[in-house]
């Protein structure tokens, strides 16, 4: 059972439907026991970093997620959910993140439209057991902030938006995707499936 963590940040329906199409069992929840009992966790999220951390802490989920991840439970952060895995963000102030991965979240700054919105090419940088069998392709991004990871080996895939944008991160059982796999056609579905199915 995969627990999709529901903390009031964004719509989880498309993600849950994608898991359903892939035939993976899921539950949408903010319940601590359910999260503890789940085999894997997905932390989605759309909106502002600070709000998201506040919503997590209101539900007493901050420490729980960190503990579960440290104990080895597979955790996938999507979009803002990936950014929350990192140390801190300067989105509308300074906010601490879950600090499961080391790095900062910064505003995109380039002479191109922002948000970075649309289909962009996923280039794999480091091999990762979960994604070994996948071919590169386009996935759907929509974000105005991006992750600057401290450890380059945590960056599994990037995309080019006049500079390298962190697209997939992973360290052991903690995974993040800046794009929306549930909105990224067949490749997105494969990526989700690999997380749901794979052993890490």
């Amino acid at each position: 059972m995969i627990a999709i963590i529901d903390y009031g940040m964004g719509n989880l329906f498309s993600l849950s439907q994608a898991l359903q199409r892939l035939d993976h069992e899921y539950v949408i929840t903010d319940d601590m026991d359910t999260i503890q009992q789940a085999d894997k966790l997905i932390l989605p999220g759309v909106g502002a970093f600070g709000d998201a951390m506040e919503e997590l802490s209101k539900r007493k989920l901050t420490n729980l997620i960190v503990e579960e991840a440290i104990q080895g439970k597979p955790l996938l952060g999507i979009c803002l959910g990936m950014q929350l895995l990192f140390t801190s963000s300067d989105e509308h102030g300074y906010y601490s993140g879950l600090n499961l991965l080391s790095g900062q979240v910064e505003k995109l700054n380039m002479d191109l439209p922002i948000p970075h919105m649309g289909w962009n090419w996923l280039s794999f940088r480091h091999p990762h057991p979960l994604f070994r069998s996948l071919e590169e392709g386009h996935v759907y991004f929509v974000h105005s902030y991006h992750v600057k990871a401290t450890n380059s080996e945590d960056v599994i895939a990037t995309t080019d938006y006049s500079e390298d944008i962190t697209a997939i991160v992973a360290r052991k059982n903690v995974i993040g995707m800046q794009f929306h796999p549930e909105k990224s056609g067949q490749l997105g579905m494969q990526l989700l499936h690999q997380f749901a199915e794979g052993r890490i």
Partner: peptide
Amino acid sequence: RLAASKLTIP
């Protein structure tokens, strides 16, 4: 709702 359950694009 139905579209969201079927589509793989935004």
